[in-house]
Nucleic acid binder design. Structure first.
Lengths: 114, 114
DNA sequence: TATGCATATGCGATTTTTCATATATAATGA
DNA sequence: TCATTATATATGAAAAATCGCATATGCATA
């Protein structure tokens, strides 16, 4: 993972928040991210597709939902950068987490908690 | 330091390489960075000004040169992210370091080595 | 004055992002 | 089975942001 490509992935608000939320929650589907971010579904979907094509995320279809998680193959240092950002700036996604947890009808699946 | 602003700073090749070189060398002036990066002086200067206005770098004039270094006030986590990137992807700036060290007539000053 | 350096700016070009809309797929219920 | 609903994906085009180049300015010094 070229560091320039990695940091370009993080340099957009929708992508950065999505990555931090996924780092925190383990796995999230598009509709959950759409709700947590308060953004349009196509916008969220497009940015997730971009992160997947860079190799940062991988997806898994379960029923009608597609869940995104950090790709296991991403270099260790990039995971640590995300984790450190989350540790230091947790408040950055506080409001997004609140919206996520207030959301009703969240799809069920094996959850990985942070 | 808002993480989004920080990562936008890192999402440009000139800025990322400059920050990593400064992280490694402690302090560099514009002409040294211009040489190390092989970019035009106005381009380098413009990006350094941007990094300074974000609070990531601070400058110090000494004679005819302006030296840039990481601002002491930047949050610890951002310094650690830069250091971790450097540790993991040192080869990313190998060629820039070579050019820098081959450069003749480098301005003299108290050097801080990595 | 002349030189060497940093900085500032106007503008065109490129890239990125966003929006609107269309298509595809899966689940649900009649 | 078929229609409906809910989801993701794809795409074309507009809008916005960013970047790079050329050039001008300011400042210090020889």
């Amino acid at each position: 993972m070229n560091p320039l490509i990695f940091y370009k992935c993080l340099a957009d608000e929708t992508r950065l928040r999505s990555l931090l939320l996924i780092t925190c929650e383990g796995e999230l589907c598009v509709c959950e991210l759409t709700e947590a971010l308060g953004e349009s579904q196509p916008k969220v979907s497009r940015h997730l597709a971009q992160l997947r094509s860079c190799g940062l995320l991988e997806d898994r279809r379960q029923g009608q939902w597609v869940f995104y998680r950090l790709a296991p193959s991403v270099p260790d240092w990039t995971k640590k950068v995300l984790q450190r950002t989350l540790d230091a700036e947790r408040t950055f996604i506080d409001e997004n987490l609140r919206k996520l947890h207030r959301m009703g009808d969240r799809p069920e699946r094996a959850r990985i908690c942070c």
